[in-house]
Design a protein around this nucleic acid. Structure first.
Lengths: 356, 356
DNA sequence: TTGAAAGCGCTAACAT
DNA sequence: ATGTTAGCGCTTTCAA
């Protein structure tokens, strides 16, 4: 067979025998040549399609293995119109919560032939838009994106994505398509209720300044509103910028108590700063939970070995990942399905040792 | 112009005007039609190529934005033979060290037009092989893989990858191509030296059972050998399976001290279990670092707010990621470069408050 | 059970 | 500065 004349590169010539062949990646054609089976049938074998005789199958497998052939998925995706990728867009990996969501997604995708690909937003709407654009340019089979708040352009992209879109972590708002998460407003209320029930009266709140961390904001609002319903104000607040850390929690706790010495309970917007506060208070011999109660948010397992278990509300991170992946996988099996799934998980308060 | 007859699907027909158009993703052709500019020129504009008049540029940009066109990178990659992806293969994200490596990689890739794509191995050689195969099937422009130990098949794949390959985290061994990391053997020796210099004599080691965590093994060996050179044995060991956690560190510390009450220094294979041990000992009123010294490994910032700063050796995770990305990016700019770069970073011991 | 032909959406090379 | 042509490596469709 004659190679067609191409304007891009000369037809493959036999390499001068004396030099090592260039590291040209192998193609189906190479396996075809090596096995004496047509490209088409080689393709079928390697994709595990039925209707290939056992003998042919074996010959092809042997040749592919011997040559070290690795199929080219770019070409496969191009030809089939199917890209076995799920775009995952999250704020960052530094946050401790997202690695676990990712783990859940991987778990949920197992056996579906789909692979997650991750992009980051750093909690910046502009970067989220860019990350989504980037991801969508691979024409993934599904999109999983953290949060319900996006720029209008981002929402437009998601609507036009032509694949299932699952917004995760939060259900307090309007989703473009499916949503899997918890209600952060409710999580905040839940904590407020526990605090009220325990009879604490002078409430301090320690949280992030980030106006773009909508979930943290919703937790705060739920918390504040529930207290207000009981006629209780938030007596003092301490806000910070930047990442959460034990150190930050210590500093903030010191600061808020310096300003409002009589607080008898502290609600931290996440467990990391909560744990910092806990350590700081313990070092000073505070009576926890007697004189001062503490509560955080997230249920980070990582902190399990601290001197006391911080009261917290589990964010159901792993489960959210798993369920979101499940939604995507199921949708691809039944393309006629209506979409718009909404899965609200209901976290519970784990009292730990820091609320009386 | 007449659409050619295709065996795969009928030529595009005008949709019945009364129904919403199917969510067919847009193509260059659509932008071309909408802007009255040829596909080729549209392509040029959207890729930012030079030699397009400002007027044309504007018309194309306007049309693309109005339609919400997202380029198809699968097709772009296919046509150009360039896939702007860097495959990153690491054991897991649960480990705390890898998110930071990833952050370093992202940083190092910034401005290069390359994007990291991550795969996981769970420290299992079989899964590593599978992950590499998977990643290579996307024909990435570079590969960054943790560790120097791989199955022969994996090494073969890497050699044939046809792109720069950087093995990271470790430099104690033979790399397929480039390597960026630290010597874990040296890190272990470094800790041993600090312990010797401080006059501790009864040494306990607490580490993982995982025979496949080669870097932990090398640290242990370096540690043990350096002590042996000074005539000091390791008096007791405590090994564990599964992930590291504060809790695990507590349990192990309790266990090793129950068996060997007279240990005066404990070397933990990572900071997480080290911190657990630290908390456990502090609760029991141990005199640290007087009666018992502690050291870990990794330099995890996360633990900064503990009551004492654990002595540790920084693994240079972020820097390793950054440099590895740099190697890949540079190699793509100068394809004639020889390769085989070897970058050894030299970690230092941070004494903290737990070695006298 | 196998093979042949066409083309997925884009870009390299060439032509104008 | 812009357009034309061919084809990247696969898979779909159809034929044998």
């Amino acid at each position: 067979m004659m190679a067609p004349v191409s304007p891009r590169r000369p037809p493959t010539l036999p390499p001068p025998a004396s030099r090592p062949p260039p590291a040209r990646p192998l193609t189906l054609r190479d396996v075809s040549a090596a096995s004496g089976v047509s490209e088409m049938t080689v393709s079928r074998v390697l994709r595990g399609a039925a209707d290939v005789s056992e003998a042919t199958r074996a010959r092809v497998r042997e040749a592919a293995a011997r040559l070290g052939y690795v199929p080219n998925r770019i070409a496969g995706a191009m030809a089939s119109g199917r890209v076995p990728l799920v775009a995952v867009v999250v704020p960052s990996l530094g946050n401790m919560v997202f690695p676990e969501v990712l783990a859940g997604i991987s778990e949920g995708l197992e056996g579906s032939g789909l692979q997650p690909v991750v992009g980051f937003t750093d909690y910046e709407p502009g970067r989220e838009e860019a990350a989504l654009f980037d991801m969508l340019s691979w024409r993934p089979s599904g999109v999983i994106v953290a949060g319900l708040e996006h720029t209008e352009a981002a929402r437009a992209m998601l609507r036009r994505a032509g694949c299932p879109v699952v917004e995760i972590m939060d259900v307090d708002g309007e989703a473009v398509d499916a949503a899997v998460g918890i209600s952060h407003a409710r999580a905040g209320r839940l904590t407020a209720e526990a605090i009220l029930a325990s009879g604490y009266r002078r409430v301090g709140f320690l949280g992030t300044k980030m106006p773009l961390d909508h979930r943290a904001r919703k937790r705060f609002e739920g918390f504040r509103d529930r207290l207000a319903e009981a006629g209780l104000p938030i007596a003092a607040q301490e806000l910070y910028e930047g990442g959460s850390s034990l150190l930050k929690g210590r500093e903030m706790t010191a600061a808020i108590l310096a300003r409002a010495r009589d607080l008898d309970v502290l609600y931290y917007s996440n467990d990391m700063i909560g744990a910092g506060g806990l350590l700081w208070l313990l070092e000073r011999g505070a009576d926890i939970p007697g004189t001062v109660g503490l509560a955080g948010f997230n249920g980070v397992e990582l902190l399990d070995g601290l001197p006391r278990r911080l009261a917290t509300v589990d964010a159901c991170r792993r489960e959210i990942g798993r369920r979101a992946a499940g939604v995507v996988a199921r949708r691809l099996q039944r393309p006629e399905a209506p979409g718009g799934e909404r899965v609200e998980l209901t976290p519970t308060l784990q009292r730990g040792d820091t609320l009386r």
